[in-house]
Write a protein that binds this DNA or RNA. Structure first.
Length: 306
DNA sequence: CGTTCCTCCTGCTAGC
DNA sequence: TGCTAGCAGGAGGAAC
């Protein structure tokens, strides 16, 4: 469920509550949440013991904690929230939640970190940190304040830059969109092309740009594609300022509080409600085995069937 | 090779 | 009231 703004809120919570702490014991309830760690949950718990958390990082919808083991080796603990994952900071004595998948106890007397996930599409995995393939290494003479000193997890090097990263290159994304003979919404959701956008913010960006998601991306002009990307960035920034989007208690930030951006949505989930620009009722259509919301008047369907 | 589709889960709700 | 089909904000990997 969470898209970039929601994941960034969670990252900030991790930064505040767990960075700088030493893991004393990690525990996993079942193996599914660590299915990407092939040696299994006991092995992962062993590897995490006595690691210090140096940073909480994010690219698109992926989070990772930068860890340093007692032998000095640094790795990333990837955390993906999937559709329903939550991170909670709570006293170890708090009763276990339904669908609690992992707990982290720390060497200090502070609270636990917990991973709760109803559907378990989310996952955690350990990965080596490698140089970022998208961001050139800083020159040796650079002032030592460069971001991402530790590199990025090797297993997510296929994830593209998100539009909030300083190195995000709008021109190259537009060029790739111009080369794609496919629906523009499909491209917006492709995390290897531009990361962080999910079904909600794709629909919101398309509504703002007045483009139907089934238009072929290659058929849109470069300025139109540029506006679409800028709208995607803007809508995610606005959501971030308001603490993310939440329809119910399923999405909560690391403190357990919900966001309020859903009050500002113009398309997603608004079937039958008037378009805020022209008053035409918002329509819902099936696309890619899910729902798409758009204004029939501001966002006319492409003429030819795809 | 790139692109598209299916599938992994559980819970809620609309409709019968 | 009770059952169940359908749907939910993601993404890896199989299948073309």
């Amino acid at each position: 469920m969470p898209e970039l703004p929601e994941v960034e809120i969670v990252r900030r919570g991790l930064q505040e509550h767990v960075v700088g702490r030493r893991i004393e014991a990690a525990a996993f309830m079942g193996a599914r949440v660590v299915r990407r760690h092939l040696p299994g949950p006991v092995d992962l718990a062993d590897r995490l013991r006595d690691n210090v958390i140096h940073a909480a990082e994010r690219r698109g919808k992926y989070l990772w904690l930068v860890l340093e083991a007692p032998d000095g080796h640094s790795q990333g603990l990837i955390i993906h929230l999937g559709m329903s994952g939550q991170l909670l900071v709570e006293a170890a004595s708090a009763p276990p939640e339904a669908h609690l998948h992992a707990t982290f106890d720390f060497a200090d007397p502070g609270p636990q970190l917990r991973f709760v996930d109803q559907r378990t599409f989310g996952a955690m995995a350990l990965a080596d940190l490698v140089p970022d393939p998208y961001v050139p290494a800083a020159p040796r003479t650079a002032v030592p304040v460069a971001p991402r000193t530790w590199g990025i997890p090797e297993s997510i090097t296929h994830i593209a830059l998100d539009p909030l990263e300083p190195a995000f290159d709008q021109g190259s994304v537009i060029a790739r969109l111009k080369a794609r003979p496919t629906a523009v919404k499909r491209s917006l959701l492709d995390q290897g092309l531009i990361s962080g956008i999910g079904n909600i913010y794709a629909d919101e960006a398309l509504w703002r740009a007045q483009v139907h998601g089934e238009r072929e991306s290659a058929a849109l002009s470069k300025p139109a594609l540029g506006r679409l990307i800028e709208h995607a960035r803007d809508v995610m920034l606005e959501a971030l300022r308001q603490g993310g989007t939440s329809f119910d208690a399923l999405y909560v930030n690391v403190n357990g509080a919900s966001g309020y951006f859903d009050r500002s949505l113009n398309a997603y989930g608004r079937e039958g409600n008037p378009c805020q620009r022209c008053g035409t009722p918002i329509r819902r259509e099936a696309f890619m085995n899910r729902s798409s919301y758009s204004c029939p008047r501001c966002q006319p369907r492409p003429r030819t069937a795809r």
